[in-house]
């Protein structure tokens, strides 16, 4: 509204303009209120985050003071050793990273495959049922995955899958160590497989949504130039949506790193690092969930320190993802 218009209305009806100014002022107050409310919400998240980090740090301090950097490189986890427990995080860190990475190795190709099928190849009638089924997968509580992994998947893998793989790679160097026996109902591999199933819906849903944003013109131009479906997907769809797909993968990775209940059920909770994927292992969150209730003193402090490490680990992974995205965007600009 220009100043002349305001002047006009003022001469026409003084009372009316006063009322209008009042309304405007009260609306400005509304804006101020709205802004401060949203700001408070945003700041409260930061305060909460800071509070969590500080309280984790206070709880972890006795362990940090006692073990220092050795905590990161020690593999032993002996909470009942006298006179002082020997505790180190190497086993849980290894288990967390390997189970999550393996889960991504399984889930990313499958998830992308599903979303490519859904957006490019799937008959219309099938599209909705498959989408809904995958979204339902995301709604299943993790304890259910854990119990299914413990009672159904674990015994099945130990009986049928693992022995076959162990035999198959028995004479191949390196692989016969990674897939060494004996078969076990509870193992690092089982945990990774369960995690892969759990993160699949995230990767699928996000990549399907970003695949749908690819302009039809681009794809049709490629098809018109004689490209096969594979070439269209590989050279047009994926480059166009790369940032979004990586975002989905990182979201899945974040979930895999922190997943607790399902993993605690199926991983076998062993702190010693074994080369074989079919041996039991443990993750940071599974170790905390298993041992926290009956822990005290330095043992409990070390578990809190593990929690702090998971915090740092997740933060580092997310930062790495950010950096990767930034580099991709810069390269695209060239």
């Amino acid at each position: 509204m220009s100043s002349s218009e305001i002047a006009n209305t003022a001469t026409v009806d003084k009372n009316g303009s006063l009322a209008r100014a009042r309304v405007l002022r009260s609306m400005r107050w509304g804006d101020v209120l709205f802004e401060s409310l949203t700001r408070t919400a945003a700041i409260s998240v930061l305060v909460l985050l800071g509070g969590i980090i500080i309280s984790l740090f206070i709880g972890a301090w006795p362990a940090i003071k006692t073990y220092g950097f050795d905590f990161l490189t020690t593999q032993r986890w002996a909470p009942s050793l006298k006179p002082q427990p020997v505790l180190g995080a190497l086993g849980p860190i290894y288990g967390t990273l390997v189970s999550s990475l393996l889960a991504m190795v399984i889930a990313v190709p499958v998830g992308l495959g599903i979303s490519i099928f859904l957006t490019e190849l799937c008959p219309h009638a099938l599209r909705r049922p498959i989408s809904i089924a995958i979204e339902l997968l995301a709604g299943i509580p993790s304890i259910i995955y854990g119990m299914w992994g413990f009672f159904v998947l674990g015994p099945f893998l130990a009986e049928h899958f693992q022995p076959a793989v162990i035999d198959f790679f028995a004479d191949v160097p390196v692989l016969n160590v990674i897939f060494a026996g004996p078969a076990s109902n509870l193992s690092l591999f089982n945990a990774a497989l369960i995690l892969a199933i759990m993160v699949l819906p995230f990767i699928t849903a996000i990549s399907r949504d970003v695949f749908a944003t690819v302009p039809v013109v681009l794809k049709e131009a490629a098809y018109g130039a004689g490209c096969t479906t594979w070439e269209v997907v590989w050279n047009v769809v994926i480059p166009y949506t790369r940032v979004g797909v990586i975002g989905g993968v990182m979201l899945g990775l974040g979930r895999a790193l922190g997943e607790t209940m399902a993993v605690a059920f199926v991983i076998g909770n062993a702190f010693k690092i074994k080369a074989s994927l079919f041996a039991p292992a443990t993750t940071i969150s599974a170790a905390i969930a298993s041992e926290f209730a009956e822990s005290d003193g330095l043992h409990q402090s070390s578990l809190i320190l593990l929690g702090l490490l998971l915090f740092v680990l997740t933060f580092m992974v997310l930062t790495a993802a950010r950096l990767m995205l930034m580099r991709l965007e810069r390269n695209q600009g060239k």
Binding site: A78, P79, S80, L186, S187, N269
Partner: peptide
């Protein structure tokens, strides 16, 4: 080598909840 406790350093085996 191991000792007694509610949580201990198990030499072998798989852990179940």
């Amino acid at each position: 080598d191991v000792g007694a406790g509610a949580s201990i350093e198990w030499p072998v085996g798989v852990g179940a909840k």
